[in-house]
Amino acid sequence: MTDALTQQHLARRTSAALDAAVASGRELGLTVTGARVLHDLFSVVVHLAPAPVVVRVPTVLPRQADLGFLARRQRAELDVTQWLAGQGVPVIPPSPLVPREPVRRDGFSMTFWQFVEEDQGKEPDYEANAESVADLHAAMRAYPGELEFLSAAEPHFVTDSLAMLQERPDLIDPAGLDRARREWQVLEPLVRSRAAFENAFPGIDLQPVHGDSPPANIFHGVGGNLYSDFELVTLGPVEWDLAALGPACASAYDRGARRNGMRPLNEDVMAFVDAVGMLRAVSVLALVPELPVLLEYVRPAIDHWRTTPFAGGLGGA
């Protein structure tokens, strides 16, 4: 099939997001004369130079993520990061120069963040990052706000995507899709229901977690490392934040957990979150028509998924 967006369409979408960010910033009183795009994948990230403000404009979203849904998720992210900053946790905080609220303009919902200069010469150390995530979890335990249980798993997105992919054998073969749908029948109840999860994994505590692989979302600023991108912040087991990162990162996290007086990762819960993570990778195939480059990102994960036990060993094949 050939319904993927063309490079021209993608460029127009990026330009529209950039224009919306600049116009919103100026409307909020910021001086913007040299705006530039810093990043463009699921979101267009814009530095409103010379203002020390960065705008994140989500552009590639699940079908059910309307602007109201997106704004609720963005408010949770803004609230959590502001609270963490107030506790002295090293995060990229919301910009203090504008109201701490999502801004809607031209069909986008965007958030405004403090600009931090990146240390371009520093390579990520994922094991060190994973160990430091235990520090983040220790801090997040005291967050007083309410968060949804495992909203980061985006169960509606997985369900809808697996249905859509039935019409896209060019993206996943029928046998692979059949396996994914049968695995989801096993895993979905544990994702959607806190009670079902707690029944399956008794004694596993739940707490606020980052939601989107924090070892891969640590920003290397010139003044030090900062936790970033809390877009999928959620209530869940700490294992969620280490999904699919492998045994070396898990061992590193456990070192950090011991240092913080926290429990180590549970192997059964890790198998569960790894399996859910694999199905989310399969589901991302449904977004390939909107962002064709995603195919090269998710294909290795899907190839690996085909070698793993069915549903992480939690259900029969």
Rank of each mutant, 00 (worst) to 15 (best):
P102Y: 02
Q166G: 15
T6P: 05
N199P: 00
P93W: 04
D274K: 06
G68M: 10
V116N: 00
D170C: 13
D178M: 14
W305E: 04
L70Y: 06
Q207R: 15
D303G: 09
V233F: 10
Y253F: 15
L70T: 08
A139M: 08
E131P: 07
G312K: 05
N225S: 12
P174G: 15
A200F: 03
L48G: 02
A35R: 05
T31D: 04
T59P: 06
R263A: 14
A4D: 12
R72D: 14
R75V: 09
L226K: 10
A271I: 05
H304P: 02
V46G: 00
L18I: 06
S213P: 00
A20F: 11
L136I: 11
F219N: 00
R13A: 09
S151I: 08
P124M: 13
A301L: 12
M262Q: 13
A311I: 09
V45F: 06
G236V: 03
L206F: 12
R263N: 08
F197N: 02
L206G: 10
A21H: 06
A20M: 10
H156R: 14
E167H: 15
G145W: 11
G107H: 09
P93A: 12
G121N: 09
Q87I: 05
A51W: 01
R100H: 04
L150Q: 11
D241E: 08
L287T: 02
Y253S: 02
Q8F: 13
E198G: 06
A257W: 04
T234I: 06
V116T: 04
V238A: 06
R63I: 10
S283T: 00
L70P: 03
P90E: 04
L38K: 10
N129F: 14
T234Q: 08
R75M: 12
D274F: 03
R181N: 09
S24Q: 07
L245W: 03
L97D: 00
T33Q: 12
L242E: 02
D205T: 15
P214H: 07
L206E: 06
D212Q: 10
V91H: 01
A134H: 09
L232D: 05
F272N: 02
V32A: 00
A23T: 14
L187I: 01
H47G: 00
Y126R: 13
Q64F: 15
D178Y: 13
V80E: 06
P309L: 11
A128D: 10
E117L: 11
D160C: 07
A200K: 10
V233P: 05
A248F: 02
A153R: 00
A195I: 00
D178N: 15
S283Y: 01
H39G: 08
H220M: 09
A21S: 12
S283V: 01
A250H: 14
S151R: 15
L162Q: 03
A311N: 04
D125Y: 12
L187M: 05
A175P: 13
L28P: 01
F115Y: 15
I172V: 15
L171F: 13
L61V: 14
V158C: 03
I218R: 02
C249K: 05
F272T: 01
N199L: 07
F108V: 03
E231N: 09
A153S: 13
V54T: 07
N260A: 11
H304G: 10
A311S: 11
R255H: 11
P94D: 01
D173H: 15
L38Q: 11
P124D: 09
R255D: 05
I92L: 09
